[in-house]
Design a protein around this nucleic acid. Structure first.
Lengths: 243, 243
DNA sequence: CGGGACCTTGCGGGATCCCGCAGAAAAGAT
DNA sequence: ATCTTTTCTGCGGGATCCCGCAAGGTCCCG
């Protein structure tokens, strides 16, 4: 068995290396990559079916790398080892995991033992391991109590990118009014809605901008998610009939 | 000499501990804190004049901690040891460093030796040490070539928080029109400006929202900066004559 | 003192946003 | 098949945003 490590921080990388060697004595080869792009290449060359990677690298973050790796070989097992349990990350990962795939998500703050246990569970026992905290995030986001529909999330991303209602309507094949409806829902769910009528108020917010702000503060969006969205947007723009 | 380490990642913390011991044999005491709040308290109790800390912790990130520490004892020497050279961080730091204070900013990606050298320079030689990359950022941001005025940065933060023009005008004691002028400048500098006239275009952006998006993508703003700004905003709101 | 560079402010208008209202279409439920 | 619930859609209007135009104001330089 060979294991591929994709992690940009050298300290964490060597720690991971150590942990892998200790937890998986049957492992007979460990390779390291220090960003997503290199990771994809190594995964291809080595045909490695066992990967542990960080999210948040550059260039090519973990989610992008995982997507292309899984696209090429869906049975690959990936353990995500990340600092954060931002909803943006969790959602980003669960959006790209292939059906039936074995994967894991553990936080860097987890103990030594938990990491090693996760390694064995995923690579040997073929069992998914998701950190409690992350799992909580997942349920909050999927089970729609206080959670966001895919549609709502999508429109949130669109306004975060700075698109106008019309542009969004075009992109998502909707009428402008529908876009505005979704926006209204979003405002309500984010607790940004203005109860209407209090206009002497100086502390008034621009709902559209405010929505993005609270989404960022709540880590519903983060830098990574924005980057991915921006990339998607530009490719979409490129394939549009010019003007 | 005593040294205080403020860093949330245990791996990095122990690495730092090691580096301090190796670089500063004359040091006779190292204490560790794992977030800004604890760091402030320890700094007060220990009256430590030598601190090395991460930015990006929670609760109480490095900048907040440094501000209160420097407010209480401006001669404290602080080495910031961070993953990123985001303009938001660099600007945040240089905004709070007291005149004549000795401090440093080195990236975690720097070599072992550089870190140790920085430790000696700052704590022994009383000399500031700023990483090349960070220094570049600083000059780009202060030397106004492709840089942002304090005024422009301020208004950027305000729209990122979701304030309306009127609210900003009130907060900053300007007329609404002046706010809009500053916004226009900002749009130009961010390369978001719409040359006027092409209205058949579907790929149109909402300038206000788009400005925030590119600021985030360029790391002119980041999550930390937003949090600080949001905190400032709420205290400001609280002290306003109600409604 | 006059001229120039810069910032601020008001005015006006076109574009966009926000959203209540109500009919049409789609998806489920009984 | 019919009813209910949800979503999509157009219309209209008030608020906001974006910005060209032009009239001061301040500061500095010659």
């Amino acid at each position: 068995m060979k294991v591929l490590i994709i992690e940009d921080d050298p300290l964490h990388r060597s720690y991971l290396h150590e942990a892998v060697r200790a937890a998986l004595p049957e492992c007979d080869g460990v390779v390291e990559a220090e960003n997503g792009g290199a990771g994809e290449r190594l995964a291809r060359d080595w045909k490695s079916a066992h990967i542990v990677m960080d999210l948040q690298m550059s260039p090519r973050n973990g989610i992008e790398a995982a997507r292309t790796i899984w696209k090429e070989r869906p049975e690959t097992r990936i353990l995500f080892w990340s600092n954060y349990s931002d909803e943006a990350y969790v959602r980003g990962v669960s959006r790209i995991v292939p059906v039936g795939a074995v994967y894991g998500y553990v936080l860097k703050s987890a103990s030594d033992d938990r990491l090693k246990l996760a390694l064995r569970s995923i690579f040997i026992e073929s069992q998914c391991v998701i950190d409690r905290e992350v799992r909580g995030m997942q349920q909050k986001s999927l089970g729609n109590i206080n959670g966001f529909t895919e549609a709502e999330y999508e429109i949130l991303v669109d306004i975060a990118l700075g698109l106008t209602d019309r542009a969004i309507a075009h992109r998502r094949s909707l009428s402008v009014r529908s876009v505005q409806n979704r926006l209204q829902q979003l405002y309500v769910k984010l607790g940004v809605y203005q109860p209407l009528g209090n206009q002497g108020d100086d502390g008034r917010f621009n709902l559209r901008a405010r929505a993005v702000a609270v989404a960022l503060l709540r880590k519903l969006l983060n830098h990574n998610a924005l980057e991915r969205a921006e990339a998607d947007l530009t490719t979409w723009l490129a394939r549009q009939p010019h003007n």
